[in-house]
Amino acid sequence: MIKSKIAVLLITGLSMAGSTTAFAADRGSADEATAMLDKAVAHYQSAGADTALADFSATDKGWQDRDLYVFCFDDAGVTVAHGANAKLIGRDLSGLKDADGKEFVMELVSTGKSGGGWVDYRWPNPVSKKIEPKSSVVKSAGDHICGVGIYK
């Protein structure tokens, strides 16, 4: 009887570990976001701004992976590319606030212009459709600031 309870606990624990791994695999990691951003900046530099920005926003060019996608702003906070929501392109998001009231877009722009780094905020996850904590890594690409974020 004790052996059967131990077996049940082990099987339950292993199946939970497997589902955690599957859940983690549905989300991009910080390393994957950084790698995607580096690849995007290299594409921007080699293909030019117009081609790269269009590619980042297209759903068939390979710039989306699970919940990872490339987005770019100009210096004023106007969206020039967005891999998860093309309706944002051309919109001035400089005063946009997240679910907690944080004006994060200009922080993304400022961080990107000052050498790059990570910015935390809350944003709708395109996979889960829920507002979730997000961290985005950003850096300059030509005249724009591009980023890729991870959901936590």
Rank of each mutant, 00 (worst) to 15 (best):
A84I: 07
S29W: 02
K130I: 00
A25L: 13
V109F: 08
D26F: 02
C72I: 01
L14K: 04
V148N: 06
A33H: 02
A35R: 04
F56S: 10
I131V: 12
E103R: 09
Y69Q: 01
G48N: 13
R27G: 00
R91Q: 15
V137Q: 15
K134F: 01
P126C: 03
G117C: 13
S57W: 08
G117I: 15
T51A: 13
C146F: 09
V78F: 05
K97C: 08
G18Y: 01
I150D: 04
A42L: 05
E32W: 00
S140Y: 03
A99Q: 09
M36C: 02
V148W: 07
S4F: 12
Y151M: 11
L108C: 06
V80D: 09
H82N: 15
I11Q: 06
Y151Q: 11
A52E: 05
M1H: 13
P126M: 01
E107S: 12
S46H: 11
K139L: 12
A141S: 03
L53Y: 15
T12S: 15
T111K: 14
H43R: 15
A25I: 07
Y151I: 09
G149R: 00
V78I: 12
V138A: 07
I89S: 10
F71H: 01
G28K: 05
A52P: 03
S4Y: 13
W118H: 07
V105L: 06
A7Q: 09
G116C: 14
A42N: 08
V70N: 02
S110I: 05
K87P: 00
K3H: 15
A25H: 10
W63Q: 08
V119C: 07
D38Y: 01
G149S: 02
V137N: 15
L93Y: 06
V137G: 14
K39H: 10
W63I: 09
A40S: 09
C72H: 01
L53A: 14
G117S: 13
L88F: 15
A7M: 12
L10W: 01
G13P: 04
G90V: 12
A35K: 03
K5V: 14
L9S: 13
Q64L: 13
I6T: 15
G115R: 14
V8F: 14
S46L: 11
V119H: 06
V148Q: 04
I2V: 14
L10R: 03
V148A: 06
E107D: 15
V78L: 07
L88I: 09
G83Q: 00
Y151D: 09
R66M: 04
M16V: 07
D26L: 04
A81M: 01
P133G: 08
Y151C: 10
M1S: 15
S19F: 02
H144Q: 08
S136N: 07
I150W: 00
D120L: 06
F71A: 02
